[in-house]
Structures are given as structure tokens and as C-alpha cells.
Computed example of a mutant assay.
Amino acid sequence: MTTSPYVPPKVWTWDAANGGQFANINRPIAGPTHEKELPRGEHGFQLYSLATPNGQKVSIMFEELLAAGHAAEYDAWLINIGKGDQFGSGFVGVNPNSKIPALLDLTGPEPVRLFESGSMLVHLADKFGAFLPASGAARTEVLNWLFWQMGSAPFVGGGFGHFYAYAPEKFEYPINRYAMETKRQLDVLDRQLAESAYVAGSEYSIADMAIWPWYGGLVLGRAYNAAEFLDVTSYKHLMAWAEKIDARPGVKRGRIVNKNWGDEAEQVPERHSAEDFAGKAV
């Protein structure tokens, strides 16, 4: 292994030219870059998102709620992060962290803003009494796994995915470091799913909805072109769970909401009603 000649300066300064593939949307400061109001549709929930794993969590939740008969109609608006939509003043007003997704709940006497996908899942689960036990040990177990995902996935996306797939150069040390951690997390899930039908027990929950877009997508070969590199087929229980979740109608619909790339049959850039899925691969 070679030793990098890089020596960190005493005080770091930002050089946008060194940002790699996402240099145009990464910066070390917060706040809006331009004035732009968010659109609003006719429904009580307004989702502003993109079909990345974090965005898929919430659109899957909405589609699962609708499939279960809940009055959870929503409008989903595309936030094109490559063009900097997340830095518009309206979006920053809902999510000061300038990351997708962002959600407005307009069903009550006062609008409720929600940022962070885990917060949205808990809010919607409690509001509709679905996919999260109301109390007790079963609720805590779901939250255990929800927060596990929120804390663990940055190692997969920002760590492994970045250095393996997106960094301008390949470096052995960070790829090895994050591959090791990613495989450890896959093993955590595989061992858990050897003992239970779903991540948090015998019932499908928001824990599955949060974890599947990241880890299900990874083992199903939809992320970073890394399935062979990570030997994902060795995680047999995880693979079976990923395929089981992938077959759910609500998941099939939710994962393509706010998607504007790839096969057109798997693109629903905006979603305002069930009719938007007509002719799609769902």
C-alpha cells in the first residue's frame, strides 16, 4: 500500500475544484443560494424529493399507507439536486439542511414541516397508526432498527459508495476501510433476518422501509455496481428479505416516485395520483 504525500494544512479551506463528481452541489456552508418558492398540490401532504435511497423511504411509506387503505394521498415534487434545487429558499425553509427529502403536512390547523426521512416515517406511522406499534417493546425494537439505519447508512453511501464509485481517483485504504464496514453491516442484517421474517420482528414496519432502499438496493445490484465486489449472495437471509420487499406493490410504486433517470418505465418524476403510474413497471 502506498503512502499518500498529502499533509493536512493547519486550517482547511474549501476548493470547489477538488469536489469530484458532486463538486457543483457540495459546499461547506448552509442557507439558500437563490429565491425559489416550492410548488403545492391539492393534497394534504407535499413531498419534495428525489428517488435516492433516502427519498425512496418516504414515497414507499406513502404508497404502503395507500395500499393499506389509509387516506394518505400526497403530491410528490421532483427536487433536482444536480441543478441545486435543494438550495432554493422555499426548500431551505422546510429543510435547513438542504438534503432531500422534505415534507409538509398540511392536514392540521397549522402546517408541520418535516426534514430527515426517519422523522417523516415516525410522523406518518403515528398519524395513521400503521407500520409502527403504538407502545412497548415492539415499538422500541422498530425504532432501534430505524435509528440503526440512520446512523449506519452514511458509511455505505458517503463512505463506501463515494470512494468505490464516485471519487475522482481510486484509493485502496478508504475502499478497504468502508468495504469492511459495509460488509459488517450486511452481516448484522443477515444475522437478524435469520431469526425474524422482517428486520424488527414478525411484522413489516417502517424499519424495513428505511433499511430496504439502502441495503436491499445494494444486494439487488442497484447501487454502485458493487454486488460482486461485496459478495452479496453470501448473505442469504438478507437476499431473501430484499427480494420479498422488492415484490411488494407499494414498494414497486414508491421506489420510482421522483425518479427522472434510467428506464422510462421506472420513472415517475412527479406523483399526484395513482394515475401517474399508468404504463409503468409496477
Rank of each mutant, 00 (worst) to 15 (best):
A134H: 08
S119E: 02
V219M: 11
L114F: 11
Y173K: 02
F91T: 07
G31I: 05
A278D: 07
W212P: 04
F160L: 14
F155D: 03
T33I: 08
D105H: 04
E264M: 06
G44N: 07
V268K: 06
Y224L: 06
D263Y: 04
P174H: 08
I100C: 07
D85H: 11
Y215G: 03
E195L: 14
L121I: 01
V94E: 14
E243W: 00
E73H: 10
I79W: 05
R177H: 13
W261V: 11
A125M: 05
V142T: 01
A138D: 07
Q149D: 07
R255Y: 02
M239F: 00
F160A: 10
L189I: 00
H34R: 12
F160H: 09
D126C: 02
F87E: 13
H237W: 09
Y215W: 13
D85G: 10
W14F: 15
L106H: 07
K170E: 01
E169S: 12
A72E: 00
G151V: 13
P174Y: 05
F229H: 15
L65S: 00
V199I: 15
I206M: 09
G31Q: 11
G157D: 04
T13Y: 09
G161D: 10
A200P: 10
V142Y: 00
P32N: 12
G201I: 06
M1D: 12
Y224E: 03
R177N: 08
G88K: 07
K259W: 05
D126E: 15
A265V: 01
N80I: 09
